[in-house]
């Protein structure tokens, strides 16, 4: 099981801030494909990956990052701090 977190408009589109996902995905990209296949709201949220960023175990990374041994994956739009 992996904890999957969503922030900002990704959270709004998917409708939950976090959920536990049972997956055998080896990479973030594979996890995204699994989620997109689930329901329309996921397909909508992940329709344009250029508009998304991903963090694996709270570190910013790329969509080809491995999920081996990972506890937490988060999806969100580019950050707007400061």
């Amino acid at each position: 099981m992996i904890d999957v977190l969503y922030f900002a408009w990704v959270r709004e589109r998917i409708g939950v801030p976090r959920e536990q996902v049972a997956t055998n995905a080896a990479t973030v990209a594979e996890l995204i494909e699994e989620l997109k296949a689930r329901e329309e709201r996921y397909a909508l949220a992940f329709s344009d990956l250029r508009a998304l960023r991903v963090a694996v175990d709270q570190e910013l990374t790329d969509f080809d990052a491995s999920l081996v041994g990972v506890r937490e994956v988060a999806f969100f739009p580019p950050m707007t701090g400061g």
Binding site: A8, L60, A74, F76, P78, M79, T80, G81, G82
Partner: peptide
């Protein structure tokens, strides 16, 4: 901090709400 710290701003205005884009 602007683009690598995980914060997101949403503006509520009289004409609607929207996320601030990077």
């Amino acid at each position: 901090l602007k683009s690598r710290a995980p914060f997101w701003k949403k503006e509520m205005t009289q004409s609607g709400n929207g996320w601030v884009e990077a």
